[in-house]
Amino acid sequence: MKRRTSTITVLVLLTLIVLSVAYLLPIYVMLVASLKTPLEISQRRYLIPSGHLQFKNYVQAFQLVRSALINSSIISFSVTLLAAFLGGLGGYWLSRSRSTFAKVLFILVGIALYLPYQVVLIPLVQVMARTKLALTHLGLILSYLILNMPLASVLMGTFFLGMPRELEEAAEVDGANKLQTFFYVITPMALPAYASTAIIIFTQVWNEFLLALTLSTPQTTTIQVKLAEVKGSFVALYNIQMAAALISVFIPLVFFVALGRYFIRGILAGALKG
């Protein structure tokens, strides 16, 4: 028994080293690049730190990405909130109804669930631009909402499926209607599910590039588009780009950490156990 445990420890340590190298090396390269001068960038000595550390790159990068960070935050958080809330409603209904309509709807949602957004890119852009929604944050918010609603509904619904019905029955006996039951009894219990759905949706929206690029306007440029842009096409300012990336990584990271403890005992454990 003892020996087996130590084999495991060795294995864990080994994994730790391999993963550390694989995941810290890119970060190191980023950090080094973000502190270089343009001339040092064209030398392409990626592992060697700059001779004169350019901390002002960060100041410049922050000024460049500030408005994009605000845009991205507005868009991502709105979509995340709305998708989790509306998806919760739809998912709850799907998990409770046994009608033929619910079955048909479920299949439609299932197909739409993983629809690659490229498929609807052309019409989506047409609709958004023609209604002039593309000029506002609302255009991107709606687009992402449309694309992520099925996923949110299924994730939430899966959780509700696994919840015992006794509580709802008890609430009904007490005279609560369906909406009251949902908002006062079900929702508080489903907070971990909301948290994990939020994380998944947030990740999808925050990292989305193609649609954000296609609908980009000066007022709605997201961080992904901005990061691709700060490098420029002329004098590749990789140093600024890397500094900007390191600055912008904090928003999703903080969000992950804040919701992470819900996430780990999230919904998947609840319902899809086999």
């Binding site: 890119p26 970060i27 990740t203 990292n207 992904q224 990061l227 691709a228 990789y238 990584v249």
Partner: peptide, 14 residues
């Protein structure tokens, strides 16, 4: 998990 939080444009460049 950090690659998930980081711009794919940037990790791609790296």
């Amino acid at each position: 998990l950090y690659p998930v939080a980081m711009s794919f444009v940037v990790t791609g460049t790296i």
